[in-house]
Design a protein around this nucleic acid. Structure first.
Lengths: 227, 227
DNA sequence: CGATAGACATTTGTATACAATAGCGTCAAC
DNA sequence: GTTGACGCTATTGTATACAAATGTCTATCG
């Protein structure tokens, strides 16, 4: 696995604990003690505490009434809710980006979009590359939105268990549609049309939710209650 | 000032540092060192670090390219953006609450609304009480929305410098309208009408933004660009 | 037999000492 | 005079020891 990004112990702890939780080594509801996590990560409790704070903030870990740590439990409704929020916020980000994006950023998005197409049309599709470029693409939008608030909130919704699990299982048809969305987003940005950008982004996210629902074979009675 | 809530050193540090930043003892852009903050809070660096993490998350403090701490700078656009996001998210919370709220919670909101009215119609208006009850009111909505995600995100947007500064300066007419909003929210909840609830909440927040704009005498050219 | 208090174990919280790193100034070489 | 390298200082990062708090088990009393 890749650690590369940083050698700070608290980051190592973050990665290890995150992986520990996501890989299913711990069941939702299981208690986690700082010492145990320190052993797993190979660092002392101090950086573990920092890592835990981050994970807690991302709602992968929760704290009991008083201070004991547990693996968070994500209900179907939680997941739906997460996608709803993400749709709202990313839609808003796209709307802002359409107003603020620079020519240079637009060109960069075009280049990334080419890479996305290449990854999708490869045989077999290069999902890892797709994910990486998809990430870059959305990062540029966030950057173009020029709002520290958005930049702070979105990672919390994106870096969630479901997302990583989901994207791995996209089917080719979904990847193709996703690539088309990216092209349309660029068009909306180029036209400086914030409404268009928001709409495309919203359906983009919503589709991801449906893809997730299907791949996880969950009955879809939870989203018809939306208004 | 009130500390009451907790005697944990990290909470003390949080309160003290927050107050230090908001009271204007530190200018936006000023560097803050952990040791300095530890001296101010009267605790060691360890809990200070936890407090700083929280404040960083709430965007009251920012970290430079590498790890040095500075007082965050809130531009006019940042503030507008904060209110926009808050409107979106609180609107969504209200929408969810309308679907999920319990009779008991509705009754509780009625009681709080009475207290709000009392605070507003007192002579002079009891702003402190108004703020406290307003807070309780919104807490119930958040609770009724039954979404950990929302509960985690909102405090970040609400517990901001501007909010506390703003509310102190509400004028009586604004307090009255605010109290009316609360009554209407209760009506929307009682009717289980999520659209109504969302709309009332959205204008409620938007009005707060305008009240803020006026009290801070900022030219209001920033919000006509919204879509 | 059930409840409750108290001792004991487990877990989190804090302080302090030390290590690593980033910023900054100085001095030397060209 | 400018530039670059070196070392010093300021600041953040980590480990460890200890303190406080929370949960749990058991024994005793009603």
């Amino acid at each position: 696995m890749e650690k590369a990004a940083s050698q700070r112990a608290s980051d190592i702890a973050y990665d290890k604990i995150r992986q520990f939780v996501l890989s299913g080594h711990a069941e939702p509801g299981d208690q986690l003690t700082e010492e145990q996590l320190a052993r797993i990560s190979g660092v002392s409790r101090t950086p573990v505490r920092e890592a835990v704070r981050r994970l807690e903030n991302e709602l992968l870990i929760v704290r009991s009434d008083s201070k004991r740590l547990f693996v968070a439990d994500w209900s179907a409704d939680d997941i739906d809710e997460m996608f709803v929020l993400r749709g709202m916020i990313e839609g808003h980000a796209a709307s802002r980006a359409a107003r603020n994006i620079s020519v240079r950023q637009l060109e960069e998005m075009g280049r990334i979009s080419d890479l996305l197409d290449a990854a999708v049309t490869a045989n077999p599709p290069d999902v890892a590359a797709f994910l990486a470029h998809n990430r870059s693409f959305h990062d540029i939008i966030l950057e173009a939105a020029r709002s520290p608030r958005l930049s702070a909130m979105l990672p919390k919704l994106i870096e969630q268990p479901v997302v990583s699990r989901t994207a791995q299982q996209y089917r080719v048809s979904e990847l193709l549609q996703s690539a088309r969305d990216h092209r349309e987003l660029i068009a909306a940005f180029a036209a400086r049309d914030s409404h268009w950008a928001r709409a495309v982004m919203t359906s983009h996210i919503r589709r991801a939710f449906h893809a997730f629902s299907i791949t996880t074979k969950r009955p879809r009675d939870q989203y018809q209650a939306n208004d």
